[in-house]
């Protein structure tokens, strides 16, 4: 009997050590991965973002904010800090970590749309957090939102369950530069618009304190904030009344905190399907057309320090 218990304990110890080593290896591979979203977290946590203009938002930033193009046209360093599938509560802790480990930017560009204003409980690609699980600062800001358990932290390999292997295995259909993902194809035919009811109106109230904290911090530290409403294919993703609420909310924020509000929802490319990867995101071609206008506005309104 005691032999059995002894052997079980020994087996458990060996298992723990083995899985700990595997966990360490998996974390290291993920940390060094050039795939998104690991590369963005790597830059943030490693303090290597090094940019004057940083865009913050969900996957719209990743695909629309063309850092290659903007770097050359603006003559300053830019970075696309996209957090796919995220809402502002998640973007907020990403920003907090970015600020604690990197030099401050001059301009923060916030991509806003109704999706990023609605709350969901689903953790988007939870694997992206794993390499930094034992970083104290990371745990302090990320864990309260994502709700990882003690088992996730202390049982090796436990957090890797339901791992999305596609994050590593899928072929790269694009090249990535400072958070921006250049996609060369366009999707055709486009799927019909989603008919799901939008929850924008109710969630913006819950997110307002976070926005106010973020905007007042930027204002007090002399960082200019710019709200950008990106173009979408035929404005598919705006439910009735939603765009008006988005505009009025963020125009009010802009007035209160001295920010800029740039609306590109009616840009002419919104009807050109060859500029879109899908109805929501631009492709490489579209991002260049969009960023041409964006860079002009940023230069005129912000970097030259003119107010609209």
């Amino acid at each position: 009997m005691s032999k059995f218990v002894r052997h079980c304990l020994l087996f458990g110890v060996v298992l723990f050590l083995l899985f700990s080593a595997m966990d360490f290896c998996c974390s290291k591979v993920a940390e060094r991965s050039d795939r998104q979203p690991f590369n963005i977290w790597h830059d943030i946590m490693g303090g290597t973002v090094d940019a004057d203009v940083v865009a913050l938002g969900n996957s719209l930033v990743t695909l629309d904010f063309n850092t290659e193009y903007l770097d050359s046209t603006l003559g300053v360093k830019t970075y696309a800090m996209g957090f796919s599938g995220s809402q502002f509560d998640r973007q907020s802790y990403m920003y907090s970590l970015y600020r604690s480990r990197n030099r401050p930017p001059k301009v923060m560009v916030n991509f806003i749309d109704q999706r990023s204003m609605s709350l969901t409980k689903r953790v988007p690609d939870k694997e992206q957090f794993f390499p930094w699980f034992f970083d104290k600062d990371f745990r302090r800001v990320v864990f309260p939102v994502e709700g990882f358990s003690l088992a996730d932290r202390f049982i090796p390999m436990w957090r890797w369950r339901e791992f999305n292997f596609n994050l590593f295995l899928s072929r790269l259909d694009s090249h990535i530069t400072k958070g921006f993902k250049y996609v060369s194809y366009s999707l055709s035919p486009f799927p019909e618009a989603s008919s799901k009811p939008m929850r924008f109106g109710s969630d913006i109230v819950a997110l307002t304190p976070l926005w106010e904290e973020y905007l007042s911090r930027n204002a007090s530290e002399g960082i200019r904030t710019v709200f950008v409403v990106p173009p979408m294919y035929n404005s598919y993703f705006y439910a009735p009344g939603c765009k008006e609420l988005l505009d009025s909310t963020f125009q009010a924020f802009a007035r209160r905190y001295g920010a800029n509000f740039l609306d590109y929802s009616s840009l002419s490319i919104k009807e050109d399907s060859t500029c879109f990867r899908d109805p929501y995101h631009l492709n490489g071609k579209g991002s260049e057309v969009f960023c041409e206008t964006l860079s002009r506005d940023l230069r005129n309104l912000v970097l030259m320090d003119k107010n609209p």
């Binding site: 087996f11 083995l18 369950r161």
Partner: peptide, 14 residues
Amino acid sequence: IYFAVILVTMLYFD
């Protein structure tokens, strides 16, 4: 085999 089965089972646990 034990380690492999435990690992696979754990990774697929929801």
